[in-house]
C-alpha cells in the first residue's frame, strides 16, 4: 500500500473553539477510508481541510501539515490542489445547466479538453463510470435539475471524475437519497476505488461497514481509533467506538 495523503499534527479552530485536536492520519492509495463519528466530531472539518475549502470561513484557522504525495498542500496553488483532491457534497449540487454542460464545465474552462469530440468521449466515459449513461444518454441536453435526486448526485460524481482527480472526498453523499439510489452510489464508489483514493464521511454506520477498507472513528475533535473496517467493527479497542457502532449513543 502506498501512502497518498499524510496528515501530521493537524489542529483546527473555529474562533477559539478547537474542533480538531492533533490529528495524525494516513490515507493509502486506492483505498476507501471511512470517517465516522457523531455530529460535532470534526469529520466534515477534516474533510474540508484536505482540499482547503474551509479557508473562506474567517473564523477558521489551522496548524499542522498535510502532505499529498509528499508535497505540503498548504503551499500548493489552491486551484491545483482541488483539481487533485476534489469533493462531493451532502446535497446534490448540479449547476443550472444541461447534464452535458455540467460535466464539461470544469474540464472546458480548465482547458483539459480541446475538441468537441474529446468532450463527447469524456461525457460518455464518466457517465458510464457512475452507471448513469443508460439512464440519461438520450437527454443529455436536459436541465440537470430536472433529473431525480439520486441521479443528480451521481451526475455530481461524474462531474468530479471529469477533471480526473487523484483523491475524492465524499461528505455524506447519500444523506438525502433513497435506498436504491444509495446502493447505486455505493456501487459507484466501490468501482471508483480502482482508480481513485476515496475519503468517505458518513453518519450511517452500516454503510461505512459495507464499503470502507479502513475506518476512522472521530469523537469531539479527536481521532479515537483507526483500523481495518472489519477489525474495528468486530473488535473495537476503545469503549467509545464500541458504543457508537453498536448504536448505544450518537
Amino acid at each position: 500500500m502506498v501512502n497518498k495523503v499524510t496528515v501530521k499534527d493537524l489542529v483546527c479552530y473555529y474562533g477559539n473553539k478547537c474542533v480538531l485536536n492533533l490529528l495524525n492520519i494516513q490515507i493509502m492509495k486506492n483505498e476507501i477510508l471511512n470517517i465516522i463519528g457523531p455530529a460535532n466530531s470534526g469529520k466534515t472539518t477534516f474533510l474540508r481541510t484536505l482540499n482547503r475549502m474551509n479557508e473562506y470561513n474567517l473564523l477558521y484557522s489551522y496548524d499542522g501539515k498535510i502532505y499529498l504525495d509528499g508535497k505540503n498542500i498548504f503551499t500548493m496553488k489552491v486551484e491545483q490542489l482541488r483539481r487533485r483532491i476534489s469533493m462531493l457534497f451532502a446535497m446534490p449540487t448540479p449547476f443550472p445547466m444541461s447534464i452535458y454542460d455540467n460535466i464539461v464545465y470544469a474540464p472546458k474552462h480548465l482547458k483539459l479538453i480541446k475538441s468537441k469530440a474529446e468532450q463527447n468521449i469524456i461525457v460518455e466515459r464518466v457517465l458510464k463510470d457512475v452507471s448513469l449513461w443508460d439512464e440519461v444518454k438520450d437527454r443529455l441536453n436536459w436541465p440537470a435539475m430536472k433529473i431525480s435526486g439520486g441521479q443528480q448526485q451521481r451526475l455530481c460524481i461524474a462531474r468530479v471524475l471529469a477533471i480526473n482527480p487523484e483523491v475524492i472526498l465524499f461528505d455524506e453523499p447519500c444523506s438525502g437519497l433513497d435506498p436504491i439510489s444509495t446502493a447505486k452510489v455505493e456501487q459507484t464508489m466501490l468501482r471508483l476505488k480502482q482508480k481513485y483514493t476515496i475519503v468517505f464521511v458518513t453518519n450511517n454506520v452500516k454503510q461505512a461497514f459495507r464499503i470502507g477498507d479502513r475506518t476512522a472513528f472521530f469523537f469531539m475533535g479527536e481521532l479515537i481509533e483507526i483500523n481495518n473496517t472489519k477489525q474495528l467493527f468486530h473488535s473495537p479497542n476503545n469503549k467509545k467506538t464500541a458504543d457508537y457502532i453498536t448504536g448505544r449513543f450518537g
Binding site: 475549502m53 449540487t93 468530479v160
Partner: peptide
C-alpha cells in the same frame, strides 16, 4: 445558492 460556488471551487475553478 452558495452551494453552486462551493461545487465550482471544489472542481479546481478559481
Amino acid at each position: 445558492p452558495y452551494s453552486f460556488r462551493e461545487a465550482s471551487l471544489a472542481l479546481g475553478m478559481s
